[in-house]
């Protein structure tokens, strides 16, 4: 993993609009989230469970030199981390479904706590497909779902990441859920 200073610098660069910085940031954050999430549930950590929000937060603290970062950059980090989180969950859900069919026994990791059952893994994969369609129709709505649902970001954080008002996020969130509900549940 790159050290805190590097990541912080990359984040600032990304804040100035560098696409390359985004890719570097994404890769690092993804790795870090995966590293934390894949930690075996060891004996001494048995009592410690992670929510998605916890994970993103821990990744942030691990990776960013908080003394050298302002609030805007922090929001950007959360945005990137949310997308990473989504990627991670979906990758994992797909893997879990495949493994299930193969009958493998996978060791328990923190991710298992985030996706507790096979049922849920299926749902996540289905949701991702529906979200793909939504994205083609209305990108921002899909982004709101990414951040809110997968990243565990609050309305407030989402509005900071997307740089839109909180009311806009609230509306997009409601509308997107309506559309997805129709797509997934209205059988």
């Amino acid at each position: 993993m790159k050290n805190q200073k590097d990541i912080t610098a990359i984040l600032v660069e990304f804040g100035n609009g560098s696409q390359k910085a985004y890719q570097m940031l994404f890769d690092s954050v993804y790795d870090e989230l995966k590293r934390i999430a894949s930690k075996q549930l060891s004996k001494e950590r048995e009592n410690h469970t992670f929510s998605r929000t916890d994970l993103v937060h821990e990744a942030f603290l691990n990776m960013i030199d908080i003394h050298r970062i302002d609030w805007k950059n922090r929001a950007q980090f959360y945005g990137v981390a949310a997308i990473c989180m989504k990627r991670l969950l979906i990758d994992y859900a797909r893997k879990k479904l495949t493994k299930k069919r193969g009958g493998d026994i996978i060791k328990k990791t923190f991710i298992d706590e985030l996706i507790p059952g096979t049922e849920n893994a299926k749902e996540i994969v289905k949701l991702d497909e529906a979200l793909q369609k939504l994205r083609e129709f209305d990108n921002r709505m899909a982004e709101v779902v990414d951040y809110r649902y997968f990243g565990g970001l609050t309305i407030e954080q989402t509005s900071e990441v997307l740089n839109v008002s909180r009311n806009t996020v609230k509306r997009d969130w409601a509308k997107a859920r309506g559309l997805l509900y129709k797509e997934l549940k209205d059988l």
Binding site: V145, R177, Y181, K182, K185
Partner: peptide, 19 residues
């Protein structure tokens, strides 16, 4: 009505992914 149903069923609410 879908928006309302999604709301009522806590569809995609952040804790619906948890256990």
């Amino acid at each position: 009505s879908f928006i309302k149903k999604a709301e009522d069923h806590n569809f995609l609410q952040s804790d619906s992914l948890n256990t």
